[in-house]
Design a protein around this nucleic acid. Structure first.
Length: 642
RNA sequence: GCCGGCGUAGCUCAACUGGUAGAGCAGCGCACUUGUAAUGCGCAGGUUGGGGGUUCAAGUCCCUCCGUCGGCUCCA
């Protein structure tokens, strides 16, 4: 036991040191003859603290370096303070709002008299360099809330005052570095000089507290790393993301276009994109049929009464409405009502359940102009939409099967890493609490039966029912919205759906919405970025391009092409009078998986020379052999069984 | 919808502080008949996103609308 007035610090290696209370982790380390190394912050008795914070209580001390998420946050949070300080120096009238660290970086929301432009960023960076150069100590100070309010009010920092007024505790902390003071919980780096590498990335608008009714602030995004190499690596990664951008590749690979003349958010599929989409849709139709879904088709427009019944009009869903011969119509934003009308086309008995309707349904939604983004956010898109109508008792098996289906399909497209969220009943909901709880329990049980890891998003379900959301991880480690499975206790009621039970009485069926890919448009965008445009063979719009060496080889090239396409392969012959090198280059740029080169040797030998995107380069391959190999490759990637 | 950037030929980009639009690639034509990531020469292609204004003169300055990009917000 330490004597009063001193505290005991235990290190990772078991070493113990006793220091007077009020000493800092750095001082304790020094006394123990240890170095802080690359530590960003420390953890003492379970609490994250800066290396220069005077300690009042002892405990085990652990150093956290940049590889630890908490340390990374602190590091970037300090970077955000340095940026704010620089902005305040350049624009003394600037008022600061909030400036947290985020995944991969940080930002600060600031209110300024004039708008920042990209040219301002280097100036701010220079000022930040000066602050880092000066190596200002970052000092933590505790003070009563009222004093903090007075302090920030005096400095005209009205946003900080507003934040403080919302804080319940009496005591708050501020961090100071040089002339700069910010309200902050910390922890931080011990001094500004410890920032090694940072970069300001962009400027954007952001509403104060994310509320569009409040004022618009200017947000500066940046990132920081503890070495220049890591920063460079991160910036390269951003460039790689840009290279993979589906909007760019979509145009280069001639997959689709979105044109001002046609309308924002409306996708035009070019031949190659249409092939890709057809392959995906055929796959979906086959898989749904195999799993007991009935394919249905519904019109793109339906009378407004339908949307009144469904509730979409009342909740002011962003739809398109118009009139035909005095009748109000709306373009469908969802496929559910049509499926419900199919259900209601005759009296349903319990022996018929479960009923599963599947549709590749194209829907239109009036998205606000600012949110449109390539294929990922559009105004017209096609969902692989299905609705399952069953009894509560059957729901468990249905959910299980739907989950299995979703994961098998995702694996077929090359995704193997998932993050699953179970969203539970929100505060306001329709239906009975009992139904809601049973549905949630059913979802939970299905996830657990399948041994799937998931996290619970408490209260994040939709008002009409709980749901499972699956997020996919792509080749760059980014997360994308994937399959969803949701209960719906709202629509069966609104549309007065029933079935006749064993007891010969009418009951209300359970309705489950579920998608496997979500939106086909978005999914194609995801596939493009995931594969950087180099699709697996089964998805590639053109699978083989045949390159004759000279004109006299075209005839043979076409014979080969015919044999390949006769075996179901998608083939093109390049008849241009170009050098072979240039033909290869063009095929390469279009990311065609296989190039087949034919010249005198091949004509004579009756074979082909094969070159592939994946690096294969082989001459004199027997055509039959080649066809068989491609057939195997296609089968292996498209199979959901294996 | 809101804040800010951007909009020049099919694509990528030039054109000093306002002085009357230019290149590469792609396309077309001619020559070349080619063996593994760009053959050569030539031609054509733009009401500088639309509209309005300032000016002797506007791609360049101002207003407005549209689109687009980065965000906010929202969602498939």
């Amino acid at each position: 036991m330490a004597e009063s007035g001193s505290i005991e610090i235990t290190f990772d290696d078991g070493g113990i040191v006793e220091v007077p209370a009020g000493k800092t982790p750095l001082e304790a380390l020094e006394q123990a003859g240890k170095s802080a190394g690359g530590a960003v912050i420390a953890e003492v008795a379970g609490e994250s603290v800066e290396l220069n914070r005077p300690l009042q209580v002892g405990g085990s001390l652990r150093l956290l370096d940049f590889s630890e998420p908490r340390a990374r946050e602190a590091y970037r949070h300090t970077a955000s303070h340095v940026m704010a300080q620089a902005v305040k120096r350049l624009f003394p009238k600037a008022r600061l709002a909030i400036g947290p660290s985020i995944e991969d970086g940080f930002y600060y929301d600031i209110s300024l008299e004039r708008s920042l432009t990209p040219e301002d960023l280097p100036l701010i960076e220079e000022e930040m360099d000066r602050i880092i150069e000066a190596d200002l100590p970052v000092v933590r100070r505790e003070l009563p809330r009222a004093d903090a309010i007075a302090l920030f009010r005096e400095r005209g920092e009205s946003y900080k005052v507003e934040l403080l007024e919302a804080i319940e505790e009496d005591g708050v902390t501020v961090y100071e570095q040089g002339e700069f003071t910010d309200l902050c919980r910390g922890p931080h780096l011990a001094s500004t000089g410890r920032l090694k590498a940072f970069k300001l990335l962009s400027i954007a608008g952001a509403y104060w507290r994310g509320d569009e009714k409040r004022e618009m602030l200017q947000r500066i995004y940046g990132t920081a790393f503890d070495s220049a190499e890591d920063l460079d690596k991160h910036l390269e990664m951003r460039q790689e993301t840009e290279r993979r951008d589906h909007r760019r590749l979509g145009a280069e690979l001639e997959l689709f276009s979105i044109r001002e003349e046609v309308g924002p958010g409306l996708v035009i599929y070019h031949p190659r994109g249409a092939v890709l989409r057809t392959v995906i849709e055929d796959f979906l139709k086959r898989e749904h049929a195999r799993r007991g879904y009935d394919l249905v088709i519904s019109p793109h427009i339906m009378k407004s009464d339908v949307w009144r019944t469904s509730g979409h009009m009342q909740m002011e869903y962003p739809m398109y409405f118009f009139e035909i011969e005095g009748q109000a119509y709306g373009i469908k934003p969802m496929n559910c009502p049509a499926h419900i009308y199919i259900y209601k086309s005759k009296t349903r008995g319990h022996n018929e359940l479960p009923i599963r309707f599947f549709e590749l349904g194209t829907v239109y939604r009036h998205e606000r102009s600012g949110v449109l983004h390539g294929l990922l956010r559009v105004r017209g898109f096609t969902q692989d939409d299905a609705h399952i109508f069953c009894t509560m008792e059957q729901a468990e098996k249905e959910i299980n099967d739907a989950l299995t289906f979703a994961f098998e399909a995702q694996r077929a497209f090359g995704f193997t890493e998932f993050k699953i969220a179970l969203s539970t009943r929100p505060e306001h909901f329709v239906g009975t609490e009992d139904d809601m709880e049973r549905a949630t329990a059913t979802l939970k049980k299905a996830l657990e039966d399948q041994g799937l890891e998931y996290f619970v998003d408490e209260g994040e379900g939709v008002f009409y029912g709980p749901k499972i959301d699956v997020k996919l991880t792509d080749a760059l480690g980014r997360l994308w919205q994937g399959p969803t499975i949701q209960f719906d206790f709202n629509l069966p009621r609104r549309f007065e759906m029933t079935y006749v039970g064993e007891d010969n009485r009418e009951h209300s069926p359970v309705m489950i919405h579920r998608t496997v890919l979500g939106s086909i448009e978005r999914y194609i965008g995801l596939l493009i970025e995931h594969y950087a445009g180099a699709f697996p063979l089964w998805l590639a719009p053109v699978q083989v391009e045949i390159l004759p060496i000279a004109d006299r080889h075209v005839e043979y090239a076409e014979e080969v092409a015919e044999r390949l396409s006769g075996n179901g392969l998608r083939v093109e012959v390049n008849r241009e009078r170009e050098t072979t090198g240039n033909k290869i280059r063009k095929a390469w740029r279009m990311k065609v998986p296989y190039m087949v080169i034919v010249g005198d040797q091949e004509v004579e030998g009756g074979n082909v020379s094969v070159r592939s995107l994946s690096g294969r380069d082989e001459r004199g391959v027997e055509t039959e052999q080649f066809i068989a190999e491609l057939a195997d490759e296609i089968a292996s990637r498209s199979s959901t069984e294996a």
